[in-house]
Design a protein around this nucleic acid. Structure first.
Lengths: 212, 212
DNA sequence: ACGAATTTTGACTTTTTAGTCAAGAGTTGA
DNA sequence: TCAACTCTTGACTAAAAAGTCAAAATTCGT
């Protein structure tokens, strides 16, 4: 029956089939997010997504009722995963605000550059997303920013950081991290790790903390 | 006869008519660049460009033989203008490397944020440009980067700057400036000038120079 | 003011891509 | 093995946007 029931929630099926379906959806979302990240929303066509998955376009519409819905799913899933990692890192991090901020920046850059090469750029560089998704991306960014903001303000209070304006620092942090995946695209292994470390050091300069 | 002779070079016409034609082309290019900057290459349709100019699409094809050619013209014209302003500033700038770098950053941000609100973002955020134009954008960026690089290296030699890696600093500078127009979009007048100043101060931190 | 050169128009074709769907292939549990 | 359920296909439609062009409108030089 196709699109109508693409995202029905309470559909009675066996647990096993349901699991399989969920896995397939994840596969699709992952591939779609990669492409959205590489090219931006507009420039991705579903035929390409399908091709990467070795299926045809029609099959995508069995799981998602529109391109927009697929976009939303990509943003949702990957965004949650990302936020989780940052929050978990902060839970186990200790040391001075500078040490914790360095760890947070490092984790953030690592995620963007190494772990999700193109996929998560989706969130960082605003492309031509439909309004609904832009809203979601903005929410996510606010959540991430809050993690950084709290830490930076703690560091200022402790007299460790020299910051002219917290918001401006956040913008620069965000902008730099968002373009990092593009710079580091060709690098691999050792060189990439070095680039991530150097970027982390450089970004710490924004709050007045020099390396060493 | 339309498209065929859209960009013929040696067409025999009177000087006056030739001038008029050139002016019209500039008008079109300016409007097109604005739209490309706002939405990215893909998302701009020529009907919209034409509408902003109060003409119809067919008319654009009298001057440009394709959308791609219009894109190239936009990049070329605006890029030259921008580079000119930066080079002129450096000619008349004096003082320490820090003072000159601050002036250069300030000028660059001012151009991007205030003088060409959306237009020149074309160069800064990589969108889905066809390969040929991507090449041009890269060239332009290299030229701009060189201006910054020379100054930063001078400042390092003079012992004024603390920099872990020049390339990484350039990337962060570039990334931050490229997203600045988006942050400052709503601001106007006094608030915008303040934002530009604060961004300049914050970016100077990247080379280890604190305000005051 | 008039003929020639230039510019604009709007209806046209073509291409691309989102979205639909009936029919068939594959899976599952009994 | 069979019937019901699930998934995939490929040919289809629809809409949007690039690109074309003959004819009409405008502007120019004399």
């Amino acid at each position: 029956m196709g699109a109508q029931q693409a995202v029905d929630e309470a559909r009675p099926v066996s647990a096993r089939v349901q699991r399989k379906r969920g896995k397939r959806i994840q596969e699709i979302v992952t591939v779609a997010a990669e492409l959205f990240g590489e090219r931006g929303y507009d420039a991705v066509n579903l035929e390409d997504v399908a091709e990467r998955l070795d299926v045809t376009k029609g099959s995508l519409y069995y799981y998602f009722s529109s391109k927009e819905e697929l976009g939303t799913a990509a943003i949702q899933t990957l965004g949650d995963e990302w936020t989780d990692r940052l929050e978990k890192l902060l839970e186990r991090a200790d040391g001075s605000p500078a040490q914790r901020l360095r760890a947070l920046i490092h984790e953030h850059v690592t995620i963007a550059v190494r772990d999700y090469p193109a996929a998560l750029r989706v969130f960082l560089v605003p492309r031509n997303w439909p309004a609904a998704q832009r809203e979601r991306i903005k929410e996510l960014r606010t959540r991430h920013n809050q993690l950084f903001r709290d830490l930076i303000e703690e560091g200022i209070a402790a007299g460790e950081f020299t910051v002219t304006g917290v918001d401006t620092v956040l913008q620069c942090l965000h902008a730099s991290m968002s373009q990092a995946p593009a710079w580091c695209a060709e690098l691999s292994g050792r060189a990439q790790r070095a680039a991530i470390d150097e970027l982390t050091d450089t970004l710490m300069m924004l709050v007045g903390v020099h390396p060493d």
